[in-house]
Amino acid sequence: MASTAAPFPAADASEAELMIGGMTCASCAARVEKKLNRMEGVTATVNYATEKARVTFGEGLELGDLVATVEKTGYTARPVAQPPVPPPAPAPEGTREAPRDQRSSPRSPPRHRRRSSCRSPPRSPRGSPRRNPLRS
């Protein structure tokens, strides 16, 4: 599909997030999603509440192609800038991670209680508590 919109750079991981404008109901979101998913090699989900579309696309497509398809459908679209992912911080020298069983972590509570700890009064066969004949 040829792009008629302004040129956009291709996404690094073939994933993009688009801000969609002009949607007034859930049917609008479904219409945009349907048009994007009809494109070859495109998988898209559109969220009406956030007005965003998360799109995964294959080789040979550019972000401009996706924007042009949304605009042909009658809505506005612009790519959302993805924040850069910071590299992991290196560990200080001389430190190493403790084995899993020696890590300090709060002990998790037991998942269930034993039946012997239940001290409720015994019940009669009919389901009501037994009456003490000595009490009035």
Rank of each mutant, 00 (worst) to 15 (best):
residue 1 M to W: 07
residue 1 M to T: 15
residue 2 A to C: 01
residue 3 S to M: 09
residue 4 T to R: 13
residue 4 T to H: 09
residue 9 P to Q: 11
residue 9 P to F: 03
residue 14 S to L: 06
residue 14 S to W: 01
residue 14 S to H: 14
residue 23 M to D: 04
residue 28 C to A: 01
residue 31 R to V: 05
residue 33 E to M: 01
residue 33 E to S: 14
residue 34 K to M: 07
residue 34 K to L: 10
residue 34 K to N: 12
residue 36 L to V: 13
residue 36 L to E: 06
residue 37 N to M: 10
residue 42 V to P: 11
residue 43 T to F: 14
residue 43 T to C: 04
residue 43 T to L: 13
residue 44 A to Q: 09
residue 44 A to T: 04
residue 45 T to A: 12
residue 45 T to D: 14
residue 46 V to L: 00
residue 46 V to N: 03
residue 49 A to W: 03
residue 53 A to S: 08
residue 54 R to N: 13
residue 54 R to G: 09
residue 56 T to Q: 14
residue 58 G to L: 01
residue 58 G to C: 00
residue 58 G to V: 07
residue 58 G to F: 00
residue 59 E to T: 09
residue 61 L to G: 05
residue 62 E to T: 13
residue 62 E to H: 11
residue 63 L to M: 14
residue 63 L to C: 12
residue 63 L to R: 05
residue 68 A to C: 05
residue 68 A to K: 08
residue 68 A to D: 15
residue 69 T to M: 06
residue 69 T to K: 10
residue 72 K to Q: 15
residue 73 T to Q: 13
residue 74 G to P: 03
residue 77 A to Q: 00
residue 78 R to E: 14
residue 78 R to L: 03
residue 78 R to N: 14
residue 80 V to H: 02
residue 83 P to H: 06
residue 86 P to F: 05
residue 90 P to I: 04
residue 90 P to N: 05
residue 92 P to A: 15
residue 92 P to Q: 10
residue 94 G to K: 07
residue 95 T to R: 01
residue 95 T to G: 02
residue 97 E to P: 02
residue 97 E to D: 04
residue 100 R to H: 11
residue 101 D to I: 05
residue 102 Q to Y: 03
residue 104 S to D: 08
residue 109 P to T: 13
residue 110 P to Y: 08
residue 111 R to Q: 09
residue 112 H to G: 08
residue 113 R to Y: 12
residue 113 R to A: 13
residue 113 R to N: 12
residue 113 R to M: 07
residue 115 R to V: 00
residue 116 S to N: 09
residue 117 S to C: 13
residue 119 R to E: 03
residue 119 R to P: 01
residue 122 P to V: 13
residue 122 P to H: 07
residue 128 S to P: 02
residue 130 R to S: 07
residue 133 P to M: 02
residue 134 L to M: 07
residue 135 R to P: 02
